[in-house]
Design a protein around this nucleic acid. Structure first.
Lengths: 331, 331
DNA sequence: CTGAAAGCGCTTACAG
DNA sequence: CTGAAAGCGCTTACAG
């Protein structure tokens, strides 16, 4: 039905071998012949059959991407970056959304494996003891989870946290509240450690609440705990929690900014659109996605060096309207 | 490197043909032989090579899905439903996010074409005059856009709109404001027509503002227009606009519910979490995704009947906290 | 019910 | 620089 290499060969009076080379390995063909072939191919609307290519070359030109939940605003920037970077590299992306089911992660990865040249697994929920099954599907790059024996792109929250605590301290807040994320989350343990360290360094008192799920509703719950405890500054595990917190405080007539400062994490699109706009720690999802693509392609190309490489990306504070000087002490 | 059909044939002392049949066309093989083969295949860890399969059978077992923007909350439910339904049918999904660039829609579709058995294009932004280029890549199913000469799954806003207007009328609102979505949006023209019809039928006065982009920020802008005109009930083009509207009205001390009723469209996850919770018209994204998968697979299987079939799905009102009886007349 | 053979559309050593 | 040939791993008429 569609135009094949043989058709182009026939049309140009050359062999299929030459046509193939002219298209995929141009240097091996005489310049004039090459142009003649390319012109004919273009005119005939020739499009290589990827299945045939895969069968002979062993490469799919496809990257597999596994994410826990595309509906969570943390992932779209990563997904978009992976697609953009892959396109630049001439690759297509096969995405799987595993709906937060850890077990599906492994299963979907296995099904994908033969269709892709490598796998990128973002924020894997797979428990430690089964991570081996994912790694067996090499090449695999993990994003947002440190796996010592595998390639990974991780996001270091320390800098952003330090900036957030410094910012609040500079505004005169003597005490900061951190709202913890999910109990078993690798991200939360990292963020928690970072805020503890930063507070210790700055001599700021720290109180913690939680764990909370990364959802608006959880932030709503947190709001009542926070307002009951006369805290003037809060750092939430993520923007979802921060937004829920703000909505509820607003409703209760507590002014975000003047009465209480709030900082989120993720710098999601919502944060610039909330009332007031939300000060948030920017997490470089796009950079992480692009870096992961580069790594997985290197691995697929056989680079030994990349096998256990760990790319570390940094976070930074974006100051917006939800943080203000501490209210005058009412004590 | 990995186990092939030939390996299994050798191990069982049968021919590759028989092994192939036992695995993909079981009825054609003696039950005993079949079980022996399947057992061996399982034990040897045989996984069919999809590229080889595609090359001989002509089918990819992959469906292509093109969406304007995965970060817009309207799309994830559709994407998830497509993936779920495809998985049930033994298919994989190749997703492309075209970042709202109409031109990319066609280009990405063309690149995908040879890797997939059919295409699902959601809310296509491609202008009318170039739609033909997409249709040429058949089988193609359009979701959320009516294309008379192609298969499509469309969402009929009439019922939901009628329910929304009835609801507001029953609450005593004599006049309703509709906030229009993007000027060239097919969805908006449909929604606009539906609200006009419903208001005419109910004898409710209608005023319109807009167009607005489907973004929180646009809702914020709309809020000031609305509050300047003493309107007591608003239906917004989508939840994003409704949420922005609510945030701004809240900020200005206008109480959502008691002072002004607000209805969104999409019933996105945010709507149940806003303050107050947002009454919204539920749009059956999941059903649309599943229906699209079924249609595209029918088309790929050669069904003539499905070629210009139009599946129509209905919307309905979900009443939450943002709608209340009209405030006592202050005139 | 089973097997031998051809073929899907490419790529890639191997000759020349 | 170009071509003939083999082969990638399957499926599928065609015989038997």
């Amino acid at each position: 039905m569609s135009v094949t290499l043989a058709d182009v060969a026939r049309a140009t009076g050359l062999s299929a071998s030459t046509v193939s080379r002219a298209l995929s390995d141009p240097d091996k063909v005489n310049a004039k012949t090459r142009e003649r072939i390319r012109k004919a191919a273009r005119e005939m609307g020739y499009v290589p059959n990827p299945a045939a290519r895969t069968l002979t070359s062993g490469s799919n030109d496809v990257i597999g991407l596994i994410v826990p939940d595309i509906a969570n605003p943390f992932f779209p920037p990563i997904i978009k970056a992976v697609q953009a970077r892959a396109t630049v590299k001439g690759k297509t992306v096969l995405i799987a959304d595993v709906d937060e089911h850890p077990a599906d992660e492994i299963q979907r990865a296995q099904v994908m494996r033969k269709r892709v040249d490598g796998l990128i697994v973002v924020s894997p929920r797979t428990p430690e003891e089964r991570l081996q099954e994912l790694m067996a599907l090499e090449p695999v790059v993990f994003v947002n989870r440190q796996v010592p024996t595998a390639a990974s792109v991780i996001i270091d929250n320390a800098d952003g946290m330090r900036e957030a605590v410094e910012h609040l301290a500079a505004l005169g807040h003597p005490k900061i509240c951190y709202l913890n994320g999910p109990r078993r989350s690798w991200s939360n343990s990292q963020r928690q450690r970072a805020v503890q360290q930063a507070c210790a360094d700055q001599g700021v008192e720290l109180v913690e609440f939680g764990p909370f799920e990364p959802q608006i509703q959880a932030g709503v719950r947190a709001a009542d705990l926070v307002s009951a405890s006369k805290i003037t500054a809060v750092i939430a595990y993520d923007d979802m929690i921060a937004l829920g917190l703000m909505a509820r405080l607003n409703e209760r007539g507590i002014r975000i900014g003047p009465d209480i400062s709030v900082i989120g994490i993720d710098d999601s699109p919502m944060s610039g659109m909330a009332y007031p706009t939300l000060t948030s720690i920017h997490v470089p999802g796009s950079e992480a996605g692009a870096a992961a693509v580069d790594m997985v392609l290197e691995l697929a190309a056989g680079s030994e060096a990349a096998t256990t490489r760990h790319v570390q990306l940094e976070t930074r504070l974006i100051v917006r309207g939800s943080t203000s000087p501490a209210p005058a002490r009412a004590e």
